[in-house]
Every structure is written in structure tokens, then in C-alpha cells.
């Protein structure tokens, strides 16, 4: 299994769009930064045919240090969750794209 990084995505932009390598990398960064800023503001990010990133509020609960068994409160917090779209799920399994289903 290979791991792709920013470099692979920037290279794809470079070869698909024909921008310079530098500018390709900068635009990739701008995309990620816009997404991160929206999520930081608590806003969901919906990318059609890919999925939705959203922020969920979690309440306080009691956790336990697994090593010492000491109870510690887990504070209320916000967590990020990703819901893949039907299209992404189908493409990952090499299936034909679902027709007439949601496109989020």
C-alpha cells in the first residue's frame, strides 16, 4: 500500500492544469486552508461526489486512564467527522455510479 502526500496531489494539479509546480502546491494549500477555516468556524464543508466534513459537539463524559484506572472527566469538545458520499463509496468499490441518489 502506497501513501500519497501533498506532493502527489500538487503533481496531479501540475500535469492536469499546467500551472507551475510552485503554484500548484500553493493552490492545494489554499484549498485545504479554506476547508480548515470553515470547519474551525463550525461550518460543514460539502464536496459533492466526495463527501461532507462536519463538526460535531460532544458532551462531557467520564473517562478512565487505562494505565492507572483513575477516573478523569473528558471535557465537552468538538470533533470533526467525515461522511463519504454514495458516489465516493461506489467508486472505491469499483461499482457503477449510483444514479438518482444523493450527490453530496
Amino acid at each position: 500500500m502506497n501513501t500519497l502526500t501533498r506532493a502527489s496531489l500538487a503533481e496531479a494539479i501540475y500535469s492536469q492544469v499546467g500551472l507551475s509546480r510552485n503554484e500548484s502546491a500553493a493552490l492545494l494549500e489554499a484549498v485545504l486552508e479554506h476547508m480548515a477555516a470553515a470547519l474551525e468556524a463550525g461550518e460543514a464543508v460539502k464536496i459533492s461526489a466526495f463527501g461532507t466534513f462536519m463538526v460535531r459537539q460532544k458532551g462531557q463524559r467520564v473517562g478512565r486512564n487505562p494505565k492507572t484506572g483513575v477516573e478523569v472527566p473528558i471535557l465537552p469538545r468538538k470533533v470533526l467527522s467525515f461522511r463519504p458520499s454514495q458516489v465516493l463509496k461506489a467508486r472505491i468499490n469499483g461499482q457503477p455510479l449510483p444514479s438518482g441518489t444523493e450527490d453530496a
Binding site: 500500500m1 502506497n2 501513501t3 500519497l4 502526500t5 502527489s8 496531489l9 496531479a12 494539479i13 492536469q16 492544469v17 492545494l28 484549498v31 464536496i47 461526489a49 466526495f50 465516493l88 467508486r91 472505491i92 469499483g94
Partner: peptide
């Protein structure tokens, strides 16, 4: 291109 590239990598079994 960004989201396509991620999708194609996952379909190959790669991670991003």
C-alpha cells in the same frame, strides 16, 4: 483534480 486524485488513490487501496 484534488478530490479525484484522492478517490483514485483510495480505489487502488492507497492512503492519502
Amino acid at each position: 483534480t484534488i478530490f479525484d486524485e484522492i478517490t483514485t488513490a483510495l480505489a487502488r487501496g492507497d492512503r492519502v
